[in-house]
Design a protein around this nucleic acid. Structure first.
Length: 272
DNA sequence: AGATCGGCCTGGACGC
DNA sequence: TGCGTCCAGGCCGATC
């Protein structure tokens, strides 16, 4: 069971990172040499205008015509040194930003799946998933009929398709299982009609909005910038609940591998 | 072009 | 106790 950061976790990080980073000039950058860190040194000298989010990506536009694009991967977190939370850097700090107000921001990432990339403003062509990212689920751009059309246009099973980030941005393994359970859709389903697509559309929005209110799901690794855990884990009804009775119909929840990912669902009340 | 699959990376859980 | 093996998983790139 892994608490990989998805949209609610990344949004919770963004809300704490923005006030500390926006308006600050990045004085120096120190990254460990690694393929997943691309051109990060170019961020030095730029002033961060904001910290925004698209799907699971954090984006800090700089006043130098560049964007610092950040992805937490599986275990990534941002922490400031010298704060009230008592954070001190450990062996898992992979990158450090020095700010003009004396702030020192560490990017900690045990498994090194996180990515930091500096690109020209808005030029995401070299970041394939970001370039093809679907609409933000909690914005008006996420339209139920367009979502239905996207599901109808693929031959993939619905859950792996959600994980591609193309029909909608920011849904990962945990919230895909939760939303499919709530919409009563079997994750293997390859045909999703209009009414069911609309149910899934609503379920995705509800599941993500509730998780944001609880500042994300922490099992072990996920932390916000202030070091605190999210409070959503105890509200999960599908993910990680294999073998437990379905809260809706009491049949035991099944745990399978689908598209190479652990998947928990109710074989009784989630229909193909 | 869309779909599929292996690889990346590491600590922790598990088996003997 | 200690060692080996397996597992988790977002994204990317190669391949069909």
């Amino acid at each position: 069971m892994e608490d990989v950061p998805e949209l609610p976790e990344v949004e919770s990080v963004r809300r704490q990172l923005h006030p500390r980073l926006a308006g600050r000039r990045i004085v120096a950058v120190d990254v460990e040499p690694q393929a997943r860190f691309v051109d990060v040194g170019r961020a030095a000298g730029g002033r961060a205008l904001a910290v925004t989010r698209r799907g699971k990506y954090l984006i800090a536009p700089l006043d130098t015509g560049l964007d610092l694009v950040m992805h937490l991967g599986m275990t990534g977190s941002f922490r400031f040194r010298g704060g009230a939370d008592g954070w001190v850097p450990d062996a898992y700090v992979r990158a450090t930003l020095q700010l003009d107000d004396g702030g020192v921001l560490d990017f900690r990432d045990v498994r090194r799946f996180g990515r930091l990339t500096v690109v020209r403003t808005g030029d995401y062509a070299g970041i394939a998933t970001l370039a093809r990212l679907g609409p933000e689920p909690l914005s008006d751009d996420f339209d139920p009929d367009r979502f239905w059309a996207a599901l109808a246009a693929t031959r993939m099973a619905v859950k792996p398709y959600l994980l591609t980030q193309r029909p909608v941005a920011g849904v990962g393994n945990i919230y895909a299982d939760e939303a499919l359970w709530r919409a009563r859709i079997n994750p293997h389903a390859r045909r999703v009609g209009r009414a069911r697509a609309h149910s899934l559309w609503a379920a995705i929005r509800a599941v993500l909005a509730e998780a944001i209110q609880r500042e994300g799901t922490t099992f072990r690794d996920y932390r916000m910038v202030n070091g605190e855990s999210g409070r959503n884990a105890e509200f999960l009804v599908a993910y990680g609940q294999g073998g437990q009775p379905c809260p809706r119909c009491a049949a035991p929840l099944r745990k399978v591998v689908l598209g190479g990912r652990g998947t928990t669902y109710c074989g009784s009340c989630q229909r193909r």
